[in-house]
Design a protein around this nucleic acid. Structure first.
Lengths: 241, 241
DNA sequence: TTGCTCCTCACGTCACGTGAGGTGGC
DNA sequence: TTGCTCCTCACGTCACGTGAGGTGGC
């Protein structure tokens, strides 16, 4: 079975120009030509074309695809497995996006903070998370969030929003982490950690993220110094118990 | 609160150049400039930026976004609702893609037809479906497929693969749709329709698709004439019962 | 003969990226 | 004074789109 460019274009859903372009880029040369110069594509070419499309959907640039089409290329079935994995990662990402948008919407419905501001903050946060966390971490966080009811989330949010500035103030005035006023804050913090347990690996990654992102520190006011101060205060409370 | 380009870039995850570009395109002019000519963005600008990003994620070209930023633009909260809807449509699409890839993989594992060929066929089919069916139709089909066990699907596939050429042959030799040999085929067809009921609206759309896509007719051999012939044969069997 | 598909240039486009050369704030 | 961010051109790039002008098969 042989195809002309037009036929292959229809079959694959691409345009004729795109097939020409792939040929120019050295990706897909038709197996033959007719006397009049018409391109003739065979089944073998169709195999190569699909390989190209698979790599393209994986986000590779055309010039990076060319070297992957040689004789020592991985078999299509291996590619298929990778494709499925990739698609599932993207699916998870999409699910997280939707969850985020819905949280924003809930926030708006209850008439909270300025919408655009909040949305932008969340979007840049989610970009940060994508940079610092693995897919599994993100899935874990997503699962945690989904497991909490909205009222609990509100409580968590409000407590953090109250405790962080209070701790900052204490740190700024040079307070001792063991003094009673700070200890009271630390007990509330500890209560949060008990209500919303986070596994250690995740917590470490979160800390690494704050340490490595000065912009995030400026936005939230959570600096390494503050983290150390809170740690000291919480540990003091723990030891006292 | 005011931002420089660099600050806004970090906040939004865009590049400085991109913000410059949006300004060139008339999308986002900073509310002010310092004496030295530095751009000054305000919270109002942040709102506009988010609106731009939302529209961009919806797939609009920059020049089409400009007119949507005027004073009579829909409120951000409405946009948010549309964003969620859009994201859910994309989610469903992604789920269908994964289901398709997994079906191909199952096919490969059991050592069926040539993989590339099959995959390419499926991909162009799914493109056709996207053109002719609504999101709800696709979701319905997806649900139907998911509800069947693999053995049933194989049976359906094999029967169709056997019946279509047999009906074609009968039509080609000018057979009467009521003659016994054709009636035997029609009974098997009817059995399939009973085992795998399809609602009428979906069936009609499928027919419209075959009628409107000559390429699909050539690929499958299912022409309007063949459909008419099968209908006649099936109806004859129905009336006889 | 008519209409459709094919051919090869080659410039256009969209959304930015990437220096080039220079000025302003801590 | 040094380093960082900012400024304005302006050409480059990536993956094609879109004619321009001409030839071949049913």
């Amino acid at each position: 079975m042989e195809y002309t460019v037009g036929e292959l274009a229809k079959l694959s859903g691409l345009t004729v120009r795109t097939l020409h372009h792939y040929e120019q880029q050295g990706l897909l040369h038709p197996s033959g030509r007719t006397e009049a110069g018409y391109r003739q594509y065979t089944e073998r070419d169709v195999v190569v074309l699909h390989r190209i499309l698979a790599y393209r959907q994986m986000g590779l640039a055309l010039k990076d695809i060319a070297p992957l089409l040689g004789p020592d290329a991985p078999p299509l079935s291996a590619l298929l497995g990778k494709q499925i994995e990739l698609a599932e990662v993207q699916l998870a990402r999409q699910q997280r996006l939707i969850a985020m948008l819905k949280r924003v919407q809930a926030r708006v419905d209850e008439g909270g903070e300025g919408l655009a501001d909040h949305l932008l903050k969340l979007m840049s946060m989610s970009r940060l998370y994508e940079r610092w966390m693995s897919e599994e971490d993100l899935a874990k966080m997503q699962a945690m969030q989904a497991g909490l009811d909205p009222q609990m989330i509100r409580h968590l949010r409000d407590e953090v929003a109250a405790l962080v500035p209070a701790m900052q103030a204490a740190l700024a005035r040079g307070a001792d982490p063991r003094e009673p006023e700070v200890a009271a804050l630390a007990r509330r913090w500890l209560a949060l950690e008990t209500m919303f347990p986070v596994d250690d690996a995740l917590r470490d990654k979160g800390r690494a993220m704050f340490a490595g992102e000065p912009g995030l520190q400026r936005e939230t006011g959570i600096t390494p110094a503050l983290i150390q101060f809170i740690d000291a205060a919480v540990n003091a409370v723990r030891e006292a118990a």
